[in-house]
């Protein structure tokens, strides 16, 4: 797989922006819970959508280390390279 963190991050941002409640000025360094005001359930539901659009499995224990959009992108790239 040749996905880059930048590419995946851009895709995640695009997905987030399709939700009208998400602030318009987000970037890869935004913290998902604090800056986007996602609660834990919203984070898990969003990760499920990312799993489907990128065809990847993101185990829940990985979420403990993820704070920013770029963290999530890096995690996805890492999981895909192992897959």
């Amino acid at each position: 797989m040749s996905e880059t963190v930048e590419g995946v991050s851009a895709l995640i941002i695009q997905k987030l922006l399709s939700n009208p409640k998400v602030p318009r000025d987000i970037n890869g360094d935004c913290k998902i819970m604090e800056d986007l005001a996602f609660d834990s359930l919203a984070v898990m539901n969003f990760v499920m959508e990312v799993e489907d659009s990128l065809d990847v499995s993101v185990p829940l224990d990985k979420l403990a280390d993820i704070r920013t959009i770029n963290d999530l992108a890096a995690c996805v790239v890492d999981l895909k390279s192992k897959g």
Binding site: M44, M48, E51, D55, V56, S57, P59, L60, D61
Partner: peptide, 19 residues
Amino acid sequence: QVIRFRHNDPDDLYKRIKR
């Protein structure tokens, strides 16, 4: 390793197991 599937959705479970 913990994976969630969509509520009450056996097809989604199947897809995630295959994935």
